[in-house]
Every structure is written in C-alpha cells, then in structure tokens.
Design a protein around this nucleic acid. Sequence first.
DNA 1: AGGTGTGAACACTTTCACAGCA
DNA 2: TGCTGTGAAAGTGTTCACACCT
Lengths: 216, 216
Amino acid sequence: MSRKVSDSTIRRLSLYLRILEAMERKGGGTVSSVDLAAAADTTAAQVRKDLSLFGSFGKRGLGYQVADLARQVRDILGLSRRWRVALVGAGRIGSALFEYESFRRRGFEIVTVLDNDASKVGQRWGEVEVQDTADLDRVLRDADVEVAILTVPAGAAQEIAEQVVGAGIRGILNFAPAQLRVPDGVFVQDVNMVMELEALSFDLTNRVASAGRSTE
Amino acid sequence: MSRKVSDSTIRRLSLYLRILEAMERKGGGTVSSVDLAAAADTTAAQVRKDLSLFGSFGKRGLGYQVADLARQVRDILGLSRRWRVALVGAGRIGSALFEYESFRRRGFEIVTVLDNDASKVGQRWGEVEVQDTADLDRVLRDADVEVAILTVPAGAAQEIAEQVVGAGIRGILNFAPAQLRVPDGVFVQDVNMVMELEALSFDLTNRVASAGRSTE
DNA sequence: AGGTGTGAACACTTTCACAGCA
DNA sequence: TGCTGTGAAAGTGTTCACACCT
C-alpha cells in the first residue's frame, strides 16, 4: 500500500496517537492539525503531510474527529491487536521491562522470559517461569511469539539474535550496545541509553557557551 | 566553533567511538574509513564527512590511528570528563538504571537519587541515600549535578522537569512519555521504549508481506 | 597505490502557499 | 469562513567522484 514512509513520520505518528488518546480521555470531539502540532511540538503542515501518506482522515473546515483519528493511527501502526513478546535476558533491565505497564497497555504482552543463568531459570515471574536460553528455539515456538526484547550483554547479543531469528522472530527490540546483523525481513530497533547520554554530553559541551542565554 | 552538526552525525560518532574502543582493546593500530564504515553499518564517505566536521584526523594513504581517533571523538562528545548525574524516580526502571554499569564506565555517575514515595526516602542504594523530591532544589545544588535522569510517571514529568531546571540542571534524559517544555539552553533527550516497539509493530505490519523474502 | 578531505550532485524531508471542500 | 490535502519550493542530509597528500 503506502510506500516511502520515513522513520521520523512513524515516530511522530506514535506521538500523535499518545496525544489523541489523552484527548479522548478528556472528552474527544474534534482536533485541528494546528492543535495536534502544538501538542506534538511540530508544525500543522507536518501533521497533515504525515497523515496524508495514509489517507484522508479530516474534514475541511472542521478538523479531525479525535476518536476516529486515534483508531486510524492505531491501525496504521499495527496496534489494533496484541503482540506476543519474548524477553531474553532476566537481569535488572529485563526485570524492569517485564513489570513495565506501558508495554502491556499498548498490547505488547511478555509471555515468556529466558536467561542462561542457572540461578534464574525456574524462577516464577508473575504468570511466567524463567526458561533456559538453551531451549530458546522450542520455547519461542511453543509460546508463538513474533517479537523479542533483548536485554543480554553486548557480547552475547549477535548469537542470541541469530537464535531468535532462527526461531521465527521477525522483530527485535535490542537493548544491547551492539550492531545486530539480521536477514532481510527482520526488523531491529535499538534502544541505546548510553548513546542518548552521550548526545546530551555533546549538547552541553558544544551547543551552549554561557549558562541560560541560547545562541539562537 | 563547529556549526551545523546533525543529530544523526552525533549518533554515529557515539557508534564510531564504541567501535574504536573495541578495536583499541584488540590492539589498536590504524583503521580506514572503509573499515569503520563496515563496522558501523554506513558508508566510508559518511564516516569521513562526519569526522571532517570537526577536523582532519586521518593521514592520506594510511587511515586513522585508532587510539588517537578514539580520544578525538571522546573530546568532541565531551566524554573526557565525569558527569555528575541525579536520578529522579526510584521505581523499577530507575533502580535498573542506577545499577547500569555502562553509564558509570562512560563517566556518567549517579550521585543522588530522589523519590516522593515516603517508603523509599531514606533507603540506602549503594553509596547514596534516597532523598525526598520535596527537597529537590537543595539536594541537586548540594550534589552539584548537571544532568538529571527522569524516571517518573508521565503526569509528574513536566513539573519535575521545571524543578530540576530551576535547580540549575541543563541536560535531561527523559524516560517519561511526555513532551517536556524547557527553556532555551536546556537539552532534553527522550527515551521512549513504547515508541520503539510501535515502530517495530509498524514495520511488521506494513513493510513485509510474506515471511522471509524481502521486497527489495 | 592507497586512502583522506571536500565541493558538487543527488535524495530525502520539511515548509510554504493555495485550491478546494464543508 | 475555516481547515484539509497537496504540489512546488526550500532546506537538510547523504553519496559521488576526484584532487591531493603520504
């Protein structure tokens, strides 16, 4: 269907959806591209361009129906369904993500947890039991998951990635600081918190001289 | 000094640095833009353009001295120093980040932790004691921090952001799903894990039809 | 020969501005 | 009149290709 959709557009659609759902909770009604842009910290033209890539959802002179548009954006992003997710790596970060309510609310359900640490295997985490990474292929196939969250050490990430791909996973949310090599048709999203702090460090070091006043 | 540096360039510099440091550990020597590009999954021209924004670090016919270039990139990113960091929000994610060794290794030191939950205030976390958010201004000034990591609920994020800015913080790593409004001269980096999963969901829904074969 | 540094060409993204519908 | 949807213009980021140094 729609081609040439940039990553920035996708990120903005996520953001629009978050805003629209907040508006929905506050009563709904209609919203203009100007309103949405203000909330999303972008321009009205940008909002309209982003949406126009997928269809005509507004009414000229009126704006967009909040609830309608929210549903449309959910459909575009593929969020009108549940996603079964595997968590590989039961360390501190993995454990925090397992409890993270925002994933579940959005329909991402962690249905299985794996680790290679014998002291963790067998632990009960809520409804699930931590499985051994040695059984990864079987566990992932049995659990019927399509997405894997990797919170393993950088050194293990590539090997685990290959294993989850072998088990049929097509989407990976990668927390390991490693450039994963995956076959065509498999998608990787990296979350690199150190990189974000480094970007802050750069900004603080280079983009500002004096405190307070910006060099616009 | 150097103007017009894009966010993508900064992200790539972080990546180059990670790769260079791995090479350093394996012995160092020299590296060409072709090698670096292969490891960073980009092009040689891109590597040279990125670096050329900040100076001439290579030797024609030879390439770059690994250890030298690593040091240069660290300087560019402002990583040749320690950064004192405050963690606001002592929940699951905050606690995982507090233990996260990669921050410390990179020179980001969490020197104070705050929360508004009375049951958490006073807890000992390693070397530090969890402080009350009510005392945020005093605590942050006493601790002499420049960067804050926010792992608070979305609803509280804007208010906390204003408080940390008021206390003199100029860099915020924001984990809350909220668009923070901050004055000029303050930098915000968002980490939004739900958004990353939503991007994966989009890819899996729209960018692939059959399993395995890509539509290149 | 080998590989950097860089202007010029190209590709992509955002903004402008306005025709057209409610 | 008010606001969308969209071609065209402007602006940014990436790739090409080659002069130049070692």
